[in-house]
Design a protein around this nucleic acid. Structure first.
Lengths: 269, 269
DNA sequence: CGAGTGTTTGATTTCTGTCAATGCTGGTGG
DNA sequence: CCACCAGCATTGACAGAAATCAAACACTCG
């Protein structure tokens, strides 16, 4: 057949203007970095296999250990860094989780990312020597501090390090493209479904159960990340539960039917 | 005052499921890269000041010239590369413009980026050694071909090159974050207004008039990029024209009132 | 100049945002 | 240890912004 036209499928969705949170996390203490000597090396780190600083792939793990200056702990609600802060370090998430928040001049803010252990933070600061967003801890968390100058130096000396850094940055780009896709073409149901499956996959890669997800974010934050309102997120989760796809108890979500959820996420996939 | 609640402002907007284009640009000829020796060096390139390969910032411009293997021309509608193609090169846009397109398994596709001269293409391929999206020329265009291995090598040898590459990648991340913000929290009016202003700024940086914009994309592609339907884009442009903000003639848009357009883009900024 | 793609505009629909009210939960202090 | 309270979540009713459907119009290119 000649002009085989794809079925024109389209749905309405909605976006919204997120009101600025009444309560912002308190300002970051100027430069009070609680950097401590790393008690354990990257070589023995349990995150080895998934970390941005993957020493398994690297010839000289000795140097890798030099890279991590120390740890920094960030309490729930506090910022690792703020948009506009001077850039100097990249960070690898050690424990806990973080949200990336961008702000519009009028005060509206949007969650543009969610980061868990092994993932890279701070790359948006390289471009202008100032971080471009806020990173806020969703729970008491910690990071490995990697001075960028040191990383750059190592990157010049060790090809494997260089490749790893490039790969990290590229992976981040790919992730953001996926988010763009989600916000650009997906319905609310699809957004929530893909979000849950994405989280499941990420936690599974960290040896957690793929079916039990603990959402560290509030419904409002989740909504912001997905380009939805908190009510729509809540309603969608409730409906998924009614449909037997998941089981929701507050911040805990258990995936009961992966196949079904996948079907929602990718209708005609 | 205690619980000073910010005014909760929010609006409905909509997103949609973009139907797959009935007509896809024909497949890329396998590996038929029309690489020609670069007739002029980066040193004398008119894009010098804005190019990702900024030789002005580099000590040894001799090496920079080695970097660009040659040019490749891409005809309107054709692909520079496709998602899944083996990764080997990064590209700097030389002439023309390109759209980045991502596809869902069910065939829906979304424009996730627009690239003009001096900007970097291909970074999404580093992560997995395969490109993650399609890059399609919006008009007859060309790129400078930079073998990634070579770039990596130079990057290890010359600190300035390394920093430039990192900066490029980071800048791309920041741009995508801005897109996320646009799709996540903005109304249709705001999306179109920020899009126009963004294009204006980018063209101005390339010594074109900041007020005259030639949209190389169709309304459908523009809509996809902005998370809107083509009808909404068209209506919004018409309304902006009626309000005296712009003047629209097909693909040509002339900005008449920057202040007014800015006000639409950032309501309470 | 005709066919086909792209654009504009109108009428209608709908998904999701908004407003509102109630219920739950987890942290804090007596 | 328990009661209280503020923040968070759920649910319902309603409204509205943008999608969808549809039709006419304008370019462009062969």
């Amino acid at each position: 057949m000649s002009g085989a036209s794809e079925p024109t499928r389209a749905r309405t969705m909605a976006a919204q203007r997120h009101a600025p949170s009444a309560v912002r996390a308190e300002r970051t203490p100027p430069v009070a970095v609680t950097a401590r000597a790393a008690p354990s090396s990257c070589k023995t780190c349990t995150l080895r296999s998934i970390c941005v600083v993957n020493p398994d792939a690297l010839a000289c793990s000795r140097q890798m250990d030099d890279l991590v200056l120390g740890y920094r702990h960030v309490k729930k609600g506090e910022a690792l860094y703020r948009a506009g802060d001077a850039f100097s370090n990249l960070y690898a998430v050690r424990t806990g989780s973080y949200k990336k928040v961008a702000m519009l001049p009028d005060g509206r803010e949007q969650v543009t990312g969610l980061y868990v252990s092994g993932e890279l933070l701070g790359a948006d600061g390289i471009a202008t020597d100032r971080y471009a967003s806020d990173i806020i801890a969703l729970e008491d968390s910690s990071v490995c501090v990697m001075p960028f100058d040191l990383l750059a130096l190592l990157s010049r000396e060790v090809k494997a390090v260089q490749h790893n850094v490039f790969r990290m940055l590229s992976a981040e780009l790919v992730r953001e493209s996926h988010s763009l896709m989600r916000l650009g073409t997906m319905t609310a149901d699809e957004r929530v479904a893909t979000f849950l499956l994405d989280l499941s996959r990420r936690w599974h890669a960290r040896s957690y159960s793929p079916s039990l997800i603990v959402l560290r974010m509030t419904r409002e934050e989740t909504g912001s990340l997905l380009g939805l309102t908190l009510e729509t997120v809540s309603r969608t989760l409730s409906r998924f539960q009614k449909q037997g796809l998941i089981e929701v108890q507050g911040k805990e979500v258990r995936i009961l039917d992966f196949t079904g959820l996948n079907a929602v996420a990718q209708p005609t996939g």
